[in-house]
Design a protein around this nucleic acid. Sequence first.
RNA 1: GGAGAGUUGCCAGAGCGGUUGAAUGGGACGGUCUCGAAAACCGUUGUAUCCUUACGGGUACCCAGGGUUCGAAUCCCUGACUCUCCGCCA
Length: 415
Amino acid sequence: MIDIRFINANHKLVKAAVQNKNEKADIDSIMALDEERRGLQFVFENLRKLQNQASQEIASIKRAKGDASQLLQEMGEMAAEVKNLNQKLAEINQRLEAMLLGVPNIPAAGVPVGKDESANRVVKSWGEKPEFDFEAKDHLTIAEANDLLDLPRGAKISGSGFPVYKGLGAQLERALINFMLNYHIHHHHYTEVSVPLLVNRQTMIGTGQLPKLEDDMYHVDLDDLFLIPTAEVPVTNLYANEVLPGDSLPIKHVAYSACFRREAGSYGKDTRGLQRLHQFNKVEIVRFVKPEESQQALDEMVQEAERILQAFGLHYRVVELATGDLSFASEHTYDLEVWAPGTGRYLEVSSVSCFGDFQARRAGIRYRAADGKPAFLHTLNGSGLATPRLMIAILEHYQKQDGGVHFKDILKVML
RNA sequence: GGAGAGUUGCCAGAGCGGUUGAAUGGGACGGUCUCGAAAACCGUUGUAUCCUUACGGGUACCCAGGGUUCGAAUCCCUGACUCUCCGCCA
């Protein structure tokens, strides 16, 4: 959430951000409504002041056993007015809040400006595309030959996009999750948390998935709960509406979770095999830091995600997202795209983002600053990593000419 | 799912519908005392927002949302959460 005072003071900047992010929040209406709100608020507070004073008077009259009926009658009329104003004010506040929740975060300075991913900037490339002295097969072909997946049966019991991993495929995926968790715990000093997969509406608003992306979320109507699209949601909201001691920062959490995405509007896009799924597994890293430390934290987290790919010797590139490709809540994001030699494409396996105080403001996550006052902290998170596309890259990278897979080499990395 | 109890400031814990933003105790911070420390004593100690250059002042907040009332931490309703008991169950 963007502070309304910041909007009032920097409306040009905010409007530019809205446009550059292809959003459509109406900043002028927000400012107009806020002005109306402030006016009403002022009137209301003055009225309340009178009312409070009169109440004191009535109290003292009654204590002196005097007659307060005159004043009581006057106050009766005022009470009606106060009530009326209060209702109006509540209604405006609600509308303003709703509009404010629709204002995206502002891209960080230096983020490439552009309307879509074509303006993204490749900032780094690591490793080389592997050379095979045979025709490289894609992961689906490899999976079939080795009985690693059973996608048709997944589709039967749930629908397409709900994969069934089988045999060595299932074991490999489980091992990857465990490997990545341990890596971040032991090498990068994250504290593991295991969190709920269903969260309430407020939690989804806190990290910025709602109200914008409700159609992309699986929802349990009866309980008004949402299946998480990423562990970012429960983990970031762990500290919602808290004031954390300054010396507890930075807080670093790693979590494994299943992730659920409806992927509305992306039917038929990149659907082959494990490329795009409704359910997948992911290890997520999340940090809560002081504002002055978030820039460095972002760089570190990108490197932490990179090390997983480096461990497997997979060629990848780091892409700095342009404004139009940034998520609603993000102000600065780097994607890791791993090379899948059989598929012949770079696949996004990680997205590392700094949210500034945008999420902290929405979720009410604060820390006790050096001056003793509560202040909003900064949140960051990154995939470290998502398993399906990592599986794709690994299977295609470690394939053998005879259609098999160098499982022993993969295992060696994880030991 | 059923029955009951509870939710107050950093913590514990009072609170009659009116002078309660909230007793009291603890903690923390500052001071006196001391060579220093402890003890004792004194003082300070919530958040948000508005007005004000400042000093200072206003408003709101006692789980959340409604209601009653001139006035609600205090009464009523709904919801969330915690605890106890019963039922069911991995």
